[in-house]
Design a protein around this nucleic acid. Sequence first.
DNA 1: GACAAGCAGATTGTCGACAATCTAACAAGA
DNA 2: TCTTGTTAGATTGTCGACAATCTGCTTGTC
Lengths: 230, 230
Amino acid sequence: MAKVDFSPIADTTRRAEIVALLRRAILTGQLAPGQKLNELRISEQMRVSRAPLREAMRELVQEGILTSIPYAGTFVIEVTAKDIDDAYSFNKVMDELAIERAWPLRDQRFFDELDRRHEAVKQATRALDTTRQIETALQLHGLIYEWADNSVLLETWQRLTSRLQMYFALHQHARNEPVPAEDVHETYVRLLKGKDMRAAQRHAREHIDLDFEELLAYARGLEQRPSRGA
Amino acid sequence: MAKVDFSPIADTTRRAEIVALLRRAILTGQLAPGQKLNELRISEQMRVSRAPLREAMRELVQEGILTSIPYAGTFVIEVTAKDIDDAYSFNKVMDELAIERAWPLRDQRFFDELDRRHEAVKQATRALDTTRQIETALQLHGLIYEWADNSVLLETWQRLTSRLQMYFALHQHARNEPVPAEDVHETYVRLLKGKDMRAAQRHAREHIDLDFEELLAYARGLEQRPSRGA
DNA sequence: GACAAGCAGATTGTCGACAATCTAACAAGA
DNA sequence: TCTTGTTAGATTGTCGACAATCTGCTTGTC
């Protein structure tokens, strides 16, 4: 009998597809923070009834990227500097933990996967696809969580990822700059392959710092002159 | 003009009430792990249509205490020893972090609230209300998270709490023992009021150990002879 | 007796319509 | 002019019915 690893079949419910579509729209910034999601309009655009759409929205509310006010509407979450700061500071600690847990479990498969994801980032960078660049960078970063062998830790990371992706997308969207050409993940990957765990943790912390500082500055700027309007 | 702090008005949707009902049923063990939730039956019992019930279920799926398989059903999550171990080990690190962050922010209101929640645990203990005892103990424990001034940390704790409460309720339910008479939180509260942060962190870690070890042993026992049945 | 095909029955997923609620514009009165 | 009451429109919340899918049993064939 042939030994084939069949991956789970794709979700066939409309709900799942709607969730994916909405999430993508939010995380890429097509739906701006604070924006209201009109159920009727969206359901008509998607050619779907409101039932699966509403269920999908409930999921995204729990996922933390939508917020719902009864009888008023469902909105994309607002992004404050404090939110970003909280996520950033929390992420630093989590990273240290993940590296610590994943460290003794690194094996050939880990290194291969690390290279694979690193390659994906570089490819997105070369293609000047900023959205995909953010996505792949987070996936690269998420490997230590997948390897840490702790379901709660992984799940927490995945929840956080949604918001991080949204924040970075916002940032990119705002300054509308070309992506950095140099490879900022080179050192990170090298250290994860090395023998000095502390060094890897330290780098992860500092590396994150760099990205976030800019992001924070941007968010603080936003709060000075609050956007929003009719 | 009178200065009154009006609290937000209660959620008035059926969905919100259903979520509360279902969550309570799961966390108290009235709905056993692995059990299937029949939508038609539940909606009839609650005198509600399936729409708000399904939306409520979606929320609880995202909350991590239900799991859904398309066209098959929605089930209460199974509890494995590894799940408990993961939650426990994750919780230890989070606790240290929360204490560290909350420590410099402790004030009179913190101490008052600490006493208030401690009192609630003692009262539930005296009343031999095990469910309420678990609930209040977790609320006591959660204060450091509320005070840590980090929304992501707090949110993560709240998600974790659901599952912790479920685990402990299962345990209690299984051994069906009277609640411990002595006050196991005395030291914890005292240390949180003191000046030695490290000591508080150490105690939190060790205190949690105690509770969890028993729980883990119980869960491992479960996995030997897998329950399950018609 | 073993096995595949096909057929109920039950359950989940989706739909369209109705009810409840909110918002904003407008009118009436102090 | 400001406040309050009213009303129309739009939007969300909920309902009951239908469609799609799964499960287990029965039936027929070898």
